[in-house]
C-alpha cells in the first residue's frame, strides 16, 4: 500500500513538472519594440502548435523542411541561365553572406521601385544576373532557395523597415489586415489579433506571424510560402484570393512581418 501511494505521488509530481514546463513554454512572449505595434505581446506561432509538431520543428533531422534546405544548398552552387553563373559566383559562401538577409525582408528595392520579398529577390537575380527563366511561385526550386537563404537567419530577430519609400506599402498592408472580406465577413485581425489563443474548432488561433516561413504544413504535405497561407486564409472566409506575388499580398506581407519585428526567425517552421 505504501508503495502504491508513493508511486502515485511520484507519477503526479512528474506529470505536474512536465505540464508545468509545457505551460510556461506556451506563454513565452516578448514585448514589441515599436510602441505603434497593436499587439502588446508577441508570441511566435510555434507556441500555438501542439507538442508533437513543435518537436518536429525542433530537430533539424526530423524537420521535413530541411529536405528543401538541402536542395537549396545544391542549387546555390549550380550554374544557371545564359551567363552560366551560380548564386555562389556572386554571393560566395551563403553561410556568411546570407546571414541576416532573411530577417530584413520584405524590403523596398530602389531599382525596382517596389517592396519585394525573398522569393522575388531570388527571381530578380535569376532574371537580371543569371539570364535565367525565374522559378515559379511554389515550385520546389523557389521554395528550396527561399528556405535555404532564410534559415541562415535563424535566431536573429525579425527587423523589417517600414519607413521611407516602404511606408505606403505598409499602410496598404495595414488596411488589408483590418478589412472585413468574404462571405464570412472577417478580417485577419478578427482571428489573429482579437481572438488569438482561442480555439476555432480544433485549431488554436495564433497571432499569424511570418517568422517561420516558408513553413512545412502537415496538411499540405509540403513546404509553402507566405502567399500560399494568405490565399488559404482568404478562401477560408470565402473571399477571392489574390495572385502569388501580387502588390496586395506584398504589402500585407510587409505589414504582418513588421507586427512580428523582434521575434526570432524560425524558418523552416512546421505546422499542422
Amino acid at each position: 500500500m505504501k508503495r502504491l501511494t508513493l508511486s502515485c505521488v511520484t507519477g503526479a509530481v512528474a506529470l505536474a513538472l512536465l505540464s508545468g514546463a509545457a505551460l510556461s513554454q506556451g506563454r513565452q512572449s516578448i514585448r514589441p519594440q515599436d510602441p505603434n505595434n497593436p499587439l502588446r505581446e508577441l508570441i511566435s506561432g510555434y507556441y500555438f502548435a501542439n507538442v508533437e509538431t513543435r518537436a518536429l520543428q525542433d530537430d533539424d533531422f526530423d524537420n521535413p523542411g530541411f529536405l528543401w534546405v538541402e536542395q537549396g544548398a545544391q542549387l546555390w552552387t549550380t550554374p544557371q541561365g545564359s551567363t552560366n553563373k551560380a548564386c555562389s559566383d556572386c554571393h560566395g559562401n551563403a553561410e556568411e553572406t546570407m546571414r541576416g538577409v532573411g530577417a530584413r525582408y520584405p524590403a523596398y528595392d530602389k531599382k525596382l521601385g517596389r517592396v519585394i520579398n525573398i522569393e522575388q529577390r531570388i527571381q530578380n537575380c535569376q532574371r537580371k544576373n543569371q539570364g535565367a527563366e525565374p522559378w515559379k511561385w511554389e515550385s520546389r526550386e523557389l521554395l528550396s532557395m527561399t528556405a535555404y537563404v532564410k534559415h541562415f537567419s535563424r535566431g536573429l530577430p525579425v527587423n523589417v523597415t517600414v519607413s521611407g519609400p516602404a511606408r505606403p506599402w505598409f499602410e496598404r498592408g495595414r488596411e488589408f489586415f483590418y478589412k472585413r472580406r468574404g462571405q464570412l465577413n472577417l478580417s485577419c485581425a478578427h482571428c489573429h489579433e482579437y481572438k488569438y489563443g482561442s480555439r476555432l474548432r480544433s485549431d488554436l488561433l495564433s497571432q499569424g506571424h511570418l517568422n517561420g516561413f516558408p513553413v512545412y504544413r502537415l496538411k499540405w504535405g509540403t513546404l509553402g510560402s507566405t502567399h500560399r497561407r494568405f490565399r488559404g486564409c482568404n478562401k477560408l472566409i470565402r473571399s477571392t484570393p489574390f495572385p502569388y506575388g501580387s502588390d496586395e499580398y506584398m504589402a500585407l506581407e510587409l505589414y504582418i512581418t513588421w507586427r512580428g519585428n523582434g521575434l526570432p526567425v524560425e524558418s523552416p517552421s512546421v505546422r499542422r
Binding site: G26, R27, R40, E41, E193, Y194, K195, Y196, G197
Partner: peptide, 9 residues
C-alpha cells in the same frame, strides 16, 4: 475566450 490577453473586443 482565449488564454492570452485579449484586446479590442
Amino acid at each position: 475566450t482565449g488564454y492570452f490577453q485579449q484586446i479590442g473586443l
